[in-house]
Structure formats: C-alpha cells, structure tokens
Simulated scan of single mutants.
Amino acid sequence: MTRKLLAEFCASLLLLAVVIGSGVMAERLAGGNLAIALLANTAATMAALYVLIELFGPVSGAHMNPAVSLAMALRGELPWNAFAPYLLAQLAGAACGAWLVHAMFDLPVLQWSQHARHGGGQWLAEIVATAGLLLIVLRAPSSRVAALVACWIGAGYWFTSSTAFANPAAAFGRMFSDSFAGIAPADVPGFVLAELVGMALALGLHRALGIGAASTQASGARA
C-alpha cells in the first residue's frame, strides 16, 4: 500500500505541476493571446497525462483523481479501506504540485486563486467532462487508456466551458495558485459536486451499455 500511495502522491503532484506550470509559462510567453496560452496548456497536459498513466499505472492505477478512486471503490475494484488514503495522497500531491510550480517560477509559494469559475454552464461542462473520462476508465482496453484519457482531456480543454477539470484533486490543487490555471476556493465545491455527478452518470451509462473492457489503470484528470 505504501508504494501505491507514493505513486498516487507523485503522479498527482506532477500532473498539477504540469497543468499549473505550463499555464504560467504560456501566460508569460503568449503576449496576452489567451488562445495560444490555452493551446500550450492543452498540449503540455495531454503529454503529461499519457506519460504519468503509463509510468504510475502499473503501481497504483494512476488514478490521480478522487472521482476515479471512488468509482473503483463502488465497483469493488479498490478496497474501501484504501479509498481514504488514496484521496489524501491525491489531494496532498495536488497541493504540493502547485507549490512546486510557484517555487520554480519564483512566485510566492503560498497564495490563493482569484479566478472565478462558476455558473450552470461550467458545472454542466464538468459533468460532461467527468462522465466521458470515467467511461474511458471503465470501458477502454488497458493498453489504450493513457492515450484515450489524454485525447479526451485535450479535447475537453476546448469544447467545454470549464476547460474540463474532471478531477476533484485538480480543482483542489488549482485553488492554491493565482495563475492562468487557478480556480477561486469558493468555486471549488461546485466543480467537485458536478464532477461527482458526472462520475455517477458514467457508472449508470456503463451498466446500461453492457459488458465492456474495464480497466483500473487510468485516470487522470486533470486539471
């Protein structure tokens, strides 16, 4: 279990470091062009998701995402007594990823995001993004999970109004960074609730669609 928790902590830390760090770098280099900044943020996140799932999947499943861990626990694929430790490792890793970025870019390490992200459209977007992510986790062949998760989240950056966090740990970690990728703490609960609704929807759809190739090596999220 110790190795699995270390893997979840490291994977979550590195995921948030990439999401937030690429946002900081993109914002500095894009000269105010938000489309270019988002494109750079998207590309970095997609690459990181693929690498992290391939690297840490064989150890812990590379969930990096409490919604994925909860879905696996509900399905009996993750012991319930492992869920809380997984959750804590993911949240701790996400926060540390934000702080690591601040240290690397000579920013104040401790800060809160001021970026408001709320409203029915964004919450609906999080439901859609998370449901799609969980369907990939539940139904995709394990050999294709990394690529499919990366592609789905990359697409979600652009077709959803929320930019597809699809991950409660990502929302948690991003509230500690007042940067391009941040989210105001007051808006985090709405995102988390929407993501849990998306998870529940995916579980229902998976059952309705019938037998599919399930995999516990997955996830992601994102940010």
Rank of each mutant, 00 (worst) to 15 (best):
M1C: 14
T2C: 10
R3G: 14
R3I: 15
L5V: 11
L6A: 15
A7K: 00
E8Y: 05
F9C: 09
F9W: 11
F9V: 10
C10R: 00
S12K: 05
L14W: 01
L14V: 10
L16G: 00
V18E: 03
V19P: 08
G21I: 06
E27S: 07
E27H: 11
R28D: 14
G32S: 08
L34M: 10
L34D: 11
L34G: 09
L38G: 14
A40L: 15
T45W: 01
A47C: 12
A47S: 15
V51G: 13
V51N: 03
L52E: 01
G57I: 06
P58R: 01
V59P: 09
S60M: 11
S60E: 10
A62R: 02
M64T: 14
M64I: 12
L70W: 02
A71I: 13
A71M: 11
A73E: 09
R75M: 14
R75G: 11
L78E: 12
L78F: 02
P79S: 04
N81R: 15
N81G: 06
A82Q: 15
F83Q: 07
A84E: 12
P85A: 02
A89R: 04
L91I: 02
G93V: 08
G93D: 03
C96E: 12
C96P: 03
G97T: 08
V101Y: 03
A103S: 12
F105M: 07
Q111P: 06
H115R: 14
A116W: 08
A116F: 10
A116I: 06
R117N: 09
H118M: 15
G119P: 04
G121S: 13
Q122N: 09
Q122M: 10
Q122V: 15
W123T: 09
L124M: 08
L124D: 06
A125M: 02
E126R: 03
E126K: 14
I127L: 01
V128L: 13
V128H: 03
L134N: 10
A140Q: 07
V145Y: 04
A146P: 09
A147V: 10
L148A: 10
C151Q: 11
C151I: 15
W152P: 00
I153Q: 10
G154S: 12
G154W: 12
A155R: 03
G156L: 01
F159I: 15
S161L: 15
S162D: 13
F165R: 12
F165Q: 07
P168M: 04
A169G: 05
A169Q: 13
A169C: 08
A170G: 15
M175C: 09
F176K: 00
D178S: 11
A184E: 09
P185L: 01
D187P: 01
D187T: 04
G190D: 06
V192C: 06
E195I: 06
L196R: 04
G198C: 01
G198E: 03
M199A: 14
A202K: 02
A202I: 02
L203G: 13
L203Q: 08
G204N: 00
L205V: 06
R207K: 13
R207W: 13
A208E: 05
G210S: 07
I211C: 00
A213S: 13
T216F: 12
Q217Y: 05
Q217E: 11
R222F: 13
